[in-house]
């Protein structure tokens, strides 16, 4: 496959397959996510089109990072569907973190439907040189 073909291939939205059922109707999707680590922090980029800044919930409990983004379905009210290729729904995804994260300094930004989460790592203890007497 050439580079361009690879770029053109779109990813289909994946619906959440969960054992538990939801009490409220509506579809939930798994947001496409990139995870990147730098020296000081862990960065998560998640594609959540249609989710506004204030409707994202990020929760970190016992190393499990839970991200939940609600879409505003009023965007589609009064519209009669003619032809549809995708469905809309909320986004949700959980990650188990292996690094120790400084919970108080987690930062979240939303730009054009992409959630950027910055999780600062707890500074590791410096290796200590033991002097030999």
């Amino acid at each position: 496959m050439t580079e361009e073909k690879k770029d053109l291939a779109s990813q289909e939205k994946k619906e959440v397959q969960s054992r538990t059922e939801y009490t409220v109707p509506g579809k939930k999707y798994i947001p496409a996510t990139d995870i990147v680590e730098t020296e000081k922090e862990l960065l998560l980029y998640m594609d959540m089109p249609g989710v506004k800044k204030d409707s994202v919930r990020v929760n970190l409990e016992k190393n499990v990072l839970a991200i939940d983004g609600q879409i505003d379905s009023s965007r589609y009210s009064g519209l009669k569907p003619l032809y549809t290729e995708y469905n809309v729904g909320h986004f949700t995804r959980n990650f188990e973190l292996s690094n120790d994260i400084d919970q108080s300094k987690i930062d979240a930004k939303m730009n054009d439907g992409v959630l950027v989460l910055t999780l600062p790592k707890v500074p590791e203890k410096q290796p200590q040189a033991i002097a030999v007497n």
Binding site: K5, L8, A9, S10, Q11, E12, K13, D47, M48, P49, G50, Y76, G78, L79, K80, P81, L82, Y83, T84, E85, Y86, N111, D112, G113, V114
Partner: peptide
Amino acid sequence: TTSRGSYPSVNLFKENDDTVLTAEVPG
């Protein structure tokens, strides 16, 4: 040539006499 469909996926709606096109293109 791929089986993934075209990008971006679009939805078309009708609102009165207008056609409304939406597409999810984050980032």
